[in-house]
Design a protein around this nucleic acid. Sequence first.
DNA 1: TGCTCAAGCGTAGTCTCTTG
DNA 2: CAAGAGACTACGCTTGAGCA
Length: 292
Amino acid sequence: MVNLWNKDVEKKFFNESLAFATPEQLFYVTDDNRYLAYWPKGYPSEKNTLQSRNSLIGSFTEKWTTDLLQEVVKDKGLFAVQGAICEELALTGKSRADVVISKNKNIRQKPEDILTIFEVKMSVVWNWEFRNDGSGINLTCIGDYKTHEGNPGLLRSDSMLKAAGKSINIKVSNFKASKIPIIVMGNTPITNSYYSKVDHLKISGIVQGFWSVNPKPLDNNGENIKKTEKLGFYRFEKFDELRNSIESLLSEDWNFFSSMRSNKELGQIIELANREKTYEKKGEVFLRLINE
DNA sequence: TGCTCAAGCGTAGTCTCTTG
DNA sequence: CAAGAGACTACGCTTGAGCA
């Protein structure tokens, strides 16, 4: 039984990090000397911005996602690889893929071996209070993301834009990228101003999905979106549900294509492609012609 | 070879402006 | 008038190109 994102995972993040980082690097310190993961809504005094937690939560969530995906593909002879490099797909040492599913487990990858690219955009979602009263580390959840000032994960508009931008950068890097689906993995919902946009990104073939692997991001049965109309966004509630979606992603032979053509040109291309015998062949010829 | 430094990655707070 | 989007800022960390 594999669990998706939940409060225990965040607790684990703080517990692991406290082994080598100071509480001051992981928490805000309030006026009355409380150690909190986020400023509570309406905190009255002067606030500062914590920076030292950023890279820690970044690498923790990427590792956590890699392990989760590894569970999905391990019995298929495939591998989840963290920080993959593939120059042909604009995935360089400076701008790696967070996680890829591949036929091999090397950091350096060939486009032909990569089956899916995952961009991880996750944060600490809940607010936490840390205490160390001598008897050891004590972490208490003091509220969901509606109770603190933070705007975690995919709820930030610029995170959405960055994820979309990186996907486009990969898709236009090389025609070999057109066969590889790209998924943005988050642990929060998205704002309603992005509902129709994620569907358009999916339909136009740029991002195959914004997936949240946090089944219950809000306490007290708070309302939160399950999916958008065209499944551009989807919130997973069980590991098996995630496994099924990834399996169907891996089972098809995908193609991304984009172009600006006149109706006349398109008609000519379709006519030529239609002379082929099978649907697969028609598709192949269509794609070859549209890329010429 | 070892050094510096720009450019990339990451998250998060603040602020302004638009929108309803 | 309130809420949210997006721009901007901040800063910690890593990579790799250029250069002495």
